[in-house]
Design a protein around this nucleic acid. Structure first.
Ligand SMILES: [Mn+2]
Ligand SMILES: [Mn+2]
Ligand SMILES: [Mn+2]
Ligand SMILES: [Mn+2]
Lengths: 216, 216
DNA sequence: TCATAATATTAGGTATACCTAATCAAAAAA
DNA sequence: TTTTTTGATTAGGTATACCTAATATTATGA
């Protein structure tokens, strides 16, 4: 019978994403992201180790080459799903994450190809993240968080590292979407907000939020 | 946590389909269709009974009103998925069944609506079967098997009660698709084939195959 | 009617993936 | 350095959905 790898895929996907923040991923961070208990994750990580998909370093869990390869396949399916949802079915960018997170496990390689083709082989998901190609290559643009720009500096939004629908909805309402130009007018002291200018309007943006927005 | 009803959905879907052939569905027939052992099905049917989705009559398993309602939801998602695959992603009618059978469990009510709308609220799947509406209403056309037509009688193909890709591929190669007109030229005796005329060409069609093709 | 065959269910077991409570180990604080 | 806190794992358990082998039930047909 055909195995159901959806849990394995979900773990690898999470590990891949979390390692972008800090390299070896801790059990607790992974458990938090997957909304599972630490022992559950601990146990599953052991199984993934047995399958040669992850290994344990000093500081935490790392993906093996096989694990990385599978993770990128899942991420490709996830991001293509998001594009299908926005470009063809008319979803907003804040509505697609959870749907795509289920769809990604129900998509065959055949279907993945067809979606990519039908969409004209898109390079990024609606949040600006690169879609790995069939071989697992993905182009990471050199970016920095909006929060690191200095006063009077400009940047173009590349992507938004955030999956919370409310946050995304909020950002969309300010017009802060990929490819949009943002200027930091001034930076309030003592960890205060950034005053940014987007399409002629000025907004005060918290540091936390600004750090999720990556610009070039 | 959100429950995974995919197995429940798969059982109800099968029961619904099989009961169209013969009303109360036997455990063995169900096991065969689901490609599972009889004891597995026996056990699962007991669980479905506990959930109030099916009940046991003399002759076999029947859907309760709740069961029928859920089954029709699954079938709606299945058939909309098939249409998405053919109409938007360019699949052939013989390639969609298995893909749709996985997709149908990963589609939210929200997404179901969006697919239906994007496709212009189609009335049937690529095989000619009606797509139940949101409320579970579905229009069954009055049809009979092609095998019951008499010599020289004509009919229009309404649907094909078959999910085997090879059979569907074969029928498509003869141009035998929904809405196509077929004329039975003659019927060979002793259970022999039907000689049919489709779009000017004549073909010999086995009785078994002809009984799967429903015409009006 | 009685034996045979088909169907359904029970019994007992496996794999997967989750949980809480308890324990162990490492890091940070006192 | 000893204590406390945080983090990870072990121990023991549950739910779900599958399996094979054995048994029971129902039909069929000789
Ligand atoms: Mn996911
Ligand atoms: Mn995305
Ligand atoms: Mn199905
Ligand atoms: Mn169909």
């Amino acid at each position: 019978m055909e195995a159901d790898n959806s849990r394995t895929e979900e773990y690898l996907e999470s590990i891949y994403k979390l390692q972008q923040e800090q390299h070896p991923v801790s059990t607790s961070r992974l458990a938090e992201h997957l909304k599972l208990s630490a022992p559950s994750v601990s146990e599953m990580v052991k199984k993934l180790t047995g399958k040669g998909l992850v290994f344990h370093s000093e500081k935490g869990v790392c993906l093996t080459d096989d694990g990385k390869s599978l993770a990128k396949k899942v991420i490709r399916r996830h991001r293509l799903s998001e594009r299908l949802l926005t470009d063809i079915l008319g979803y907003k960018w804040d509505e697609v994450h959870d749907e795509a997170c289920k769809l990604e496990h129900a998509i065959s390689p055949e279907m993945e190809d067809r979606i990519a083709e039908s969409l004209g082989n898109p390079k990024t998901c609606p949040h600006g993240h690169p879609i790995p190609d069939k071989e697992g290559n993905l182009v990471k643009e050199k970016v920095k968080p909006l929060s690191e720009l200095k006063a009077r500096e400009k940047g173009i939004i590349v992507n938004v590292f955030e999956e919370d629908p409310n946050m995304l909805k909020y950002l969309a309402s300010l017009g802060m979407l990929p490819d949009v130009c943002v200027k930091v007018e001034e930076i309030a002291p003592f960890g205060g907000p950034l005053i940014v200018c987007v399409a002629g309007s000025r907004y005060a943006l918290g540091r936390e939020v600004a750090s999720k927005i990556k610009v070039k």
